[in-house]
């Protein structure tokens, strides 16, 4: 009995805090997606009072709006494509880095991993802002590229405020999330396997594709999940680097809450985003589970 009191005393306050400031807000948001928008932004009352007395004032209007205009699904699909491209390039960039760290001497590894983590402890906005400088019209990269294009008579191109800028920066901010799970996996590989393959005449590419890569698949899947999911909800990167053509679903949510002030529609978008992400994760986990099992 005393043990139970201790349990409640210790776990009670954090449970209570998270219930109030995480669970209840989430439910309020779900409910908000079924409400009418208020006249001056915000939300209309849940209960309407009229001659028949009080009755519920809920609606599916926000969901109908989403599915009635393809423009929203198109934005969702565009967001998925950005996330896929980002994930692919993160994998391609992170893999050699993770291999290099896993293959380096033991006493250097911790430092090399720390060097991957450090930049991502710097402020998120600063990391986005840095690309504003690099891709800006007066930057060495833009001037150099346009000088080069000019030699072939091609019109100068702008790099900033394009989908290219958005995806490049997304790769940049998400890269550590791919390196870490890959490294955690690769580090555990038994080097004797590669030695055996070499003795049997496999060249370095064969050793990579036939041994290292298949064994690293759990790490690859973990990295894909860690990179892909957060990208779906990001709004700051396209907001700063994307211009009008590069916006993603997160920007629309932000707009509905802060500019258009259609909170029910913003809430519905948030819920559709969450459900969409969950579905993708579920399907991916099933596919990944099957592949890993088959390989084992």
């Amino acid at each position: 009995m005393t043990r139970n009191i201790g349990k409640w005393l210790i776990s009670g306050p954090p449970v209570f805090y998270l219930a109030v400031f995480f669970v209840i807000p989430t439910f309020i948001m779900v409910l908000a997606s079924f409400r009418h928008a208020g006249e001056f932004g915000g939300l209309a009352p849940i209960f309407l009072h009229d001659v028949r007395g009080a009755h519920l004032n809920l609606t599916l209007e926000s969901y109908r709006e989403y599915f009635s205009d393809f423009i929203y699904s198109r934005l969702f699909i565009k967001t998925l494509i950005y996330a896929l491209v980002t994930t692919f390039f993160c994998l391609v960039t992170a893999y050699p880095l993770a291999l290099l760290i896993a293959g380096s001497e033991k006493r250097h590894r911790d430092l090399l991993v720390l060097l991957v983590i450090l930049p991502f402890w710097s402020n998120f906005l600063i990391r986005i802002y840095a690309w504003m400088i690099i891709l800006g019209p007066q930057s060495a990269l833009s001037v150099g590229l346009n000088g080069f294009l000019g030699m072939f008579g091609i019109e100068p191109v702008g790099l900033l405020f394009t989908p290219f800028a958005v995806v490049l920066c997304l790769i940049y901010v998400q890269l550590p999330f791919m390196v870490l799970p890959l490294y955690a996996n690769l580090e555990k590989h038994d080097p004797a396997l590669l030695d055996a393959a070499q003795d049997l005449g496999a060249n370095s590419w064969q050793r990579f594709w036939r041994i290292t890569f298949p064994l690293s698949l759990p790490g690859v899947y973990a990295g894909i999940a860690l990179v892909f999911i957060p990208v779906l909800g990001i709004f700051a990167v396209p907001d700063i680097l994307g211009g009008t053509g590069g916006i993603m679903i997160g920007n629309l949510i932000k707009q509905e809450f802060l500019e258009a002030r259609d909170w029910p529609f913003g809430s519905a978008l948030s819920i559709i985003l969450t459900l969409g992400a969950l579905c993708i994760v579920g399907v991916a986990a099933m596919v990944a589970g099957r592949t890993v099992k088959n390989d084992a």
């Binding site: 400031f21 807000p25 948001m29 908000a32 909800g233 990001i234 809430s267 948030s270 969450t274």
Partner: peptide, 12 residues
């Protein structure tokens, strides 16, 4: 995603 935490707290 952080944006969902942000907007739900705003409504709350």
């Amino acid at each position: 995603p952080e944006i969902l935490v942000g907007v739900s707290l705003l409504i709350f």
